[in-house]
Amino acid sequence: MIVRSRTQDDLDGCVKALAEVQAADGYPVDWPDDPAGFLTPSDLAGAWVAVDDEGVAGHVGVTVGDAVTRLFVAPRARGRGLAVRLLEALTVRPLTLEVSDEGKAAIALYERAGWRRVGSDRAGWLNNAGEPALVHHYVLEE
């Protein structure tokens, strides 16, 4: 497994992996009309992918404000520490991220990796139950 900077040529593989994640986990809650655009928000400062023999296995981005965005690992590649490796590719500190309360596995991963919850609030979007999502805010300072 190789973790490297994402290139334009990776976007189709990223969209395919994101579709697998959405089918398995409901992330993103609403499938975007433009999934490649979803992976390339206007405030994106950089993005990295994990690639194996089957293609893109994971993705992470960081915004101009040093917030982690669009972190996911395809179901076929889980259980190998890939999310942690993707997060380690981000060298800026402190980093922040938000995660829906529904993301129990993601929350457990972040907390095992040393992220600290600094607050929670309701989002302006709906969770899988159709209610305003409870979002937890985390920071990694190292």
Rank of each mutant, 00 (worst) to 15 (best):
D25C: 06
A105D: 10
V64S: 08
A45L: 07
G55A: 07
Q22P: 03
A106D: 02
D101S: 15
T91A: 08
V84M: 04
V73N: 01
W125F: 14
P35N: 10
P28L: 09
T63Q: 02
K104P: 01
D52P: 01
D52S: 00
W31A: 12
D43A: 02
H136I: 04
T69R: 14
R116V: 15
G103N: 14
R85D: 12
F38E: 10
K104C: 04
R6I: 06
W125A: 00
K16N: 01
C14P: 07
V135N: 02
R85G: 04
R93N: 08
P132E: 08
T91H: 13
T96L: 11
L71D: 01
Q22R: 14
V21S: 06
E131T: 12
G119D: 12
A17R: 04
R117Q: 15
T96S: 12
H59K: 01
G61L: 00
E142W: 09
T91N: 06
V29K: 07
V56H: 00
F38T: 01
I107G: 10
G55N: 06
K16T: 15
P75H: 08
D121Y: 09
W31V: 10
V92M: 09
G13N: 00
T63D: 03
S5F: 06
L90F: 05
L86I: 07
V118S: 09
V62H: 00
L82I: 06
S100F: 03
S42E: 15
L44Y: 05
A77S: 12
D33V: 06
A123F: 09
W125V: 08
V92C: 09
V99Q: 07
D10G: 00
L18K: 02
V92A: 15
N127E: 08
A105C: 04
Y27E: 14
V135G: 05
V99L: 12
P32V: 13
A24L: 08
R93T: 13
H137L: 14
S42D: 14
G124T: 13
A83K: 01
T40D: 11
V64T: 14
G114M: 12
E131P: 05
T63V: 04
A57D: 02
A133P: 02
G124A: 13
G58L: 01
V3D: 10
E20N: 07
V21Q: 07
A36S: 11
A47T: 05
R78Y: 13
A123W: 09
P41H: 11
V73Y: 00
